[in-house]
Design a protein around this nucleic acid. Structure first.
Lengths: 250, 250
DNA sequence: GCTTGGATGTCGGAA
DNA sequence: TTCCGACGTCCAAGC
């Protein structure tokens, strides 16, 4: 695997290496002292400091400080990286269009530049998403309640697709909204919109029930559900220890 | 500035350097072939491939592939990094509690390890946030409508804080929800909840108006507003070119 | 391209 | 700590 490294390169050296790394489609990291300017959906300015700049061949750019999971500045995939020397500083610019956004990283000093030849590995597989919760409900509808019969998933309504639609043992339509973790007012509102939409679609006076299936619920959300005549049903939160199930083709 | 680099280190070498880098509070990057296992709020598994691992002294861990702004796996700040050699592989483990989460990165080969001595630089300042929009409205209430009089910001209700609360020229209470960009159904629902809360608080039959102040609105959201008897008022979206304004104390 | 809703969202503020 | 909403959210899927 290719890994080119420059220690404390002069700006010109860094520039040449950057340009060839961009050509090769390498993943590049730059560590050094820099300021950062962003202008686009918002605008921001970042004073001088030591930071790690990551430039990906897909156009992503990340500026990381020594703190935080989130980059302090960035550019999304699809951007284009360029480098130049201006005013005695190394400027790395990442630009994208629609929306027009520009990220400029101005290095006064580069401590290290590394270029890595990368080829994509396998994709990540995540367990415990909302999709997994849906599987569980379809396999065991009593998670919603005894006698619940699922009829459709992603059933379309005016308000958007319903996670699981079915009927209870009395034949009443039930809208089930799934959430993989503790829910707040937004989820209650979402369920209310779906129930309202189905209500309008079935104007024969049939009462439509709404069930929010989630591990737990905040007080405010509970009040909202009560106001709307909707229900919360607790479900075991997804644990990583969950079996993915046999026959799990993608 | 300190920048230690190891090229294709043996696992033991990498291990020693990692441990001293953790002690020094360095920012560490590792590039090499690895698999990744995560278990916590969800669980995930990532097959072998070339990736960049970033370990921050605040406990953050990021696993980046050659694509995407978002790390393929990560651990938030507050986690603890440890390294070990097991089964002929280098294991970098990052653990946090509440919630219990573990990230394991198993390197079969390390191409490069770098440790950087970092001290935080100046903070970033972002222009064009929702707070800026609120400033604009307070400076020029006619953005909402002619005769609108702001009375309070962040006014508390059962449903949460209202961005701007005021009265129209007829003395009717107005709930204003601000959004810095195009809004969807969620924002309409949010406004509806606030208006409902104020309605209940003022049970003297006064009609409470609700205004969603945003650059634009989706069709579905518009329908929702109409159903609820609420209004959308268009406002110029914030541009990065906006003047921060004089007297801008924090 | 726009819209919609999920996410191991993350982050910050307030109670 | 939990709750709540903003975010340059990012991201994929559907249209």
């Amino acid at each position: 695997m290719t890994a080119t490294t420059l220690h404390e390169p002069a700006h010109r050296e860094a520039l040449w290496e950057l340009e060839s790394a961009f050509d090769r489609g390498d993943l590049v990291t730059l560590f050094g002292t820099c300021t950062v300017e962003y202008d686009g959906r918002a605008a921001s300015s970042l004073g001088p400091g030591a930071r790690l700049l990551v430039l990906k061949p897909d156009g992503s750019a990340l500026v990381h400080t020594d703190e935080g999971r989130t980059p302090v500045n960035w550019q999304p995939p699809g951007s284009e990286h360029r480098a130049a020397v201006r005013d005695g500083r190394l400027r790395v610019r990442s630009v994208r269009e629609s929306p027009d956004e520009t990220l400029d990283v101005w290095f006064t000093a580069v401590d290290q530049l590394a270029a890595y030849g990368v080829t994509g590995g396998r994709a990540v597989e995540v367990i415990g998403s909302e999709a997994d919760l849906k599987e569980r409900v379809l396999e065991d509808p009593t998670l919603v309640e005894e006698g619940f019969e699922p009829l459709a998933t992603e059933r379309e309504t005016d308000a958007g697709p319903i996670d699981v639609f079915g009927r209870d043992d009395a034949g009443r339509p039930v809208v089930v909204e799934l959430k993989r973790r503790r829910v707040g007012p937004d989820a209650a509102g979402q369920l209310a919109r779906y129930v309202g939409a189905v209500d309008r679609e079935e104007p024969d006076g049939t009462a439509v029930r709404g069930v929010l299936l989630a591990p737990s619920i905040t007080d405010r959300a509970r009040d909202l559900l009560a106001d709307e005549g909707l229900e919360h049903v607790a479900v075991e939160p997804p644990t990583g220890a969950d079996e993915g199930g046999s026959g799990g083709d993608t």
